[in-house]
Design a protein around this nucleic acid. Sequence first.
DNA 1: CTGAAAGCGCTTACAG
DNA 2: CTGAAAGCGCTTACAG
Lengths: 340, 340
Amino acid sequence: MKSKPTSFDIAHLAGVSQSTVSRALRNSPLVNEETRLKVQAIAKELNYKVDKNASNLRTQQSATIALLLFEDPTNDDSLINPFFLSMLGSITKACSNKGYDLLVSFQQMNSDWHADFEDSNKADGLILLGYGDYLDYEEKLKNLIEQQTRFVRWGAEVKNLPVISVGCDNFHGGYQITEHVIKKGRRYFAFLGVASSHAPEFLDRYLGHCKALTNNKLTANKSLQFDAISTEESGYQAAQKLLASGEKFDAIFAASDLIAIGAMRALQEQGLNIPNDVAVVGFDDIQIAGCINPPLTTAKQNTKLAGELLVDKLLALIQGEDVSTQLMPTSLVIRKSCGS
Amino acid sequence: MKSKPTSFDIAHLAGVSQSTVSRALRNSPLVNEETRLKVQAIAKELNYKVDKNASNLRTQQSATIALLLFEDPTNDDSLINPFFLSMLGSITKACSNKGYDLLVSFQQMNSDWHADFEDSNKADGLILLGYGDYLDYEEKLKNLIEQQTRFVRWGAEVKNLPVISVGCDNFHGGYQITEHVIKKGRRYFAFLGVASSHAPEFLDRYLGHCKALTNNKLTANKSLQFDAISTEESGYQAAQKLLASGEKFDAIFAASDLIAIGAMRALQEQGLNIPNDVAVVGFDDIQIAGCINPPLTTAKQNTKLAGELLVDKLLALIQGEDVSTQLMPTSLVIRKSCGS
DNA sequence: CTGAAAGCGCTTACAG
DNA sequence: CTGAAAGCGCTTACAG
């Protein structure tokens, strides 16, 4: 196994200095055309590649972004939430379009996040993506800020902290989808999802939901709100509690598609027809949403755009530009689960 | 913005040499307990992190694995195939369990794969994952071997090349699922999927399928095989060709779940009942498979195990150990689409 | 147990 | 346009 060629090997073969090789390979205008071509030809022949560790060490940057994907530890699925998986795909693509590498690492929300700091060392910046108890999370954000780590995150806007977020307009999304179902004639809405400051995104969806109700002269009944985190199982359990409560309802707004899917399973097990007996709507528009029976009406979050925005903003931040938080609109995807 | 502390800063503060700092931080047994604790305390206080570029340059390794995810360019979905997304998740988790970072990059199957070589420079090894025309792909494998790149790949065994693969026993999976449907009383099987050396995995599934037919005294009718790549749309189109062909069939074996889902859409649009009129089975067991209507019977590929095996084998390879190709069994997941 | 020193492979001011 | 040289921040033989 011959060892990898270095720029000195090429210099030797080309009969020039190592400095010139380095310049030629970087397409420096200082280098004579002829010399450059000669050097590049030899480099190609030897299959030479610049050692990134050396060049990064020298230039003090890495052309690498780290993605921190964290999850609520109460979710013991070995599967990652499909919504975040979709974000992961879109971020990966956006990075490669920008010529950046992407370092991916998983974190438990309740862990020490040692890795984030380590990663911040191998990467020029961080993208934070995941879910879990927001109050735990906020603590970690403060740490990152203190470390002067450059990062952006997916989620609701953070008040009182200098953090760049990209997220969806959860309030408006919740408003819009609720209003749609109201127009279909439903009156008694249950909400499945944590609606507290522990889950700001869900809370915003809930507040939009409530606003739509009151604007339409309906009352938001707090006894029809049941906590759930974003898993199918949690949605199933929340729907069972709802059914056991004896409360009257003809519509369910689930804070995420996964919750909606679990709720639908619970309802169908009870012999209830969706949407005739109960309309069900979700949030996210994960890929499964269109394939289940009945297909799920939902508020779509544009993951492709989201990934691009996150990467663009982080790169701008790294360049030292001014960057601001951005809310994206959601779009209503009407399928059969809501009665039309 | 203060610059990052180095080991010299710590040495200065601790009143020891920089060498000792380095040793202390690496928990070298050579260092006095007391000195070590002192150094580590200061490092923690300054929020010092070892510069990976420097240490990697010095040690000539990176504790990083690169994942090359490539796709057939004919698939213009912005979404990644859910099966590979699931593999991505499992590989990411397996890497972090082993203390390795994962660099993810997308490649177009028809591109030059420049990045693979570049990545091989930032990473200790490569994992190849994706689909596309196998014949194009083989050429690239030869290049990698020539570069003496250490890599493992997901897929069918490669003959005549020294390549480590981890894959499923596609032949047996195809056999098993076909036999199950035969036992349900079906006699006329269509196969949707490319069945040629351009797609070795699909071909193996097809061959297993044919073997099950002949072992059960049925004939594999080549006019009931329709090409499809692994997308919903391609499955939809293949099923339409099947319907238009006028051939008689009471069962479809789709080479992947995505193809099956597209085929089901085509059948249902024609008013055909699944499974009463036509049994449909797929391959992979992607997450959607259990949620569609009717739920899809399929041959499950264990992505969690696959990710772990890929990472384990690559790390063994990096350690210079002997590693061999491995086939994993698939497991039959029986749902309603096949008539039971 | 500790320190002085070499060197990993680059990039880039500096001098010509 | 080119070369000699410094230096990025570590790790680790070598000497004590």
